[in-house]
Design a protein around this nucleic acid. Structure first.
Lengths: 209, 209
DNA sequence: TTGGAACAGTTATAACTTCTAACGTAAGCA
DNA sequence: TGCTTACGTTAGAAGTTATAACTGTTCCAA
């Protein structure tokens, strides 16, 4: 790695760090390249040496966020966590930096298409969920959704999980996201509800019976 | 109502209509007052006679969205719909205009505080859900969440629902939102999944047992 | 060691944005 | 008929993203 490359990647990292700080205070939609440049003591156009556009920077932030979530989930799985354990890892990750979660799962920009490598990372996450789902005992009544998923399993990327596990992973995803996104968006604030307990209860309802 | 007032409210409505169209194509964060003014054949600053700021316009759009959702839910309830019926009404409403849903439940702008009258409308929605929840037979095992909710029921705004019903309304909300928001944000697209069936299944799991 | 190429960062500029200020005009009302 | 009010205009300030053209530095290789 040449000195130039080292310097370059260091500046790119510093830009991203300032970007995250700005997102935390003003939201992703108000992220300003100019403001970042000023914080770093250089003029606005200088940043374009490092990111071709504002969208390019945001795409990289999204990529980093996905990568971080995938790493978190995979690390939990490697440490022997079951599906409930993965849920707690995901929740902890989300609460650690709400805007990072919302950048991935929040309101999408119409017309924005994530590059393929990001789609691959999200598939890694799904694979980890499926791995954990197959280890659970199958639930008794097979639903029409199970039958449907037996025929529509392209999204599982060749994972050999039985339909019940596909169903469970999907429900897991929607329930975790349901509680988490409402919590992070502040829709429970002022309600004085124990969101951890709500999260736990929704999870139990999926995993216990 | 004077002619001036009539004209004024008509122009305001036309501005909002253009705003919704623009949100549908570019997203709420890229909504441009200037572009709306041009579409209406007048200069940018003219719009400030009708809305004090861009935020003011968006707030009104949010208010209208909440009002529309509350009306939809209340109309379904008045027509005798049970909790499942309300869920279908909400889903239909969301699919009818995804951006309207995402404006309410999508990524919030940090620092934005909805005015009180909007909070009141969202309370109307919750009341309708609670009304429907109390009509269902209580589920057998009482959870720790039920106990918690017995002591934390301020958000129910004096509604006499028992803790089990509070629990059910809360779960209803998070599950409906979980499936719906992932669907509207496009996270299922490309997966070739029957999202209606997934929605139905998540709902059944809450209402059937 | 000394060119020369590559690259970082600069200013200037275009085309946007929100929003304020000052002004003319026209509509409504007494 | 005249006065007041409000509408819409242009001008402009202070931002934004992004490109172009220029300067200086750094690195690398002959």
């Amino acid at each position: 790695m040449t000195p130039r490359e080292r310097y370059r990647s260091q500046v790119r990292a510093e830009i991203k760090q300032h970007a995250w700080e700005q997102i935390a205070t003003t939201g992703a939609s108000a992220l300003s390249l100019n403001a970042i440049a000023k914080q770093m003591g250089m003029s606005g156009p200088a940043l374009y040496r490092y990111y071709a556009s504002r969208d390019d920077l945001i795409t990289e932030l999204i990529r980093d966020a996905y990568r971080s979530l995938a790493d978190t989930v995979q690390a939990a799985a490697a440490a022997g966590a079951d599906l409930a354990g993965l849920a707690h890892a995901m929740r902890a990750w989300a609460l650690e930096d709400p805007h990072r979660y919302l950048l991935i799962y929040g309101t999408p920009v119409p017309g924005y298409k994530a590059p393929d490598d990001i789609t691959l990372i999200s598939a890694e996450i799904m694979t980890a969920l499926l791995d954990a789902a197959v280890k659970l005992p199958a639930r008794t009544p097979s639903t029409p959704l199970d039958a449907h998923l037996a025929d529509h399993r392209d999204w599982a990327a060749g994972h050999p999980a039985p339909p019940e596990a596909l169903h469970r992973a999907l429900s897991f995803w929607t329930r975790v996201h349901g509680v988490l996104s409402l919590e992070l968006a502040g829709h429970f604030s002022g309600m004085r509800i124990d969101t951890a307990l709500l999260f736990e209860t929704e999870l139990n309802d999926l995993l216990a019976p």
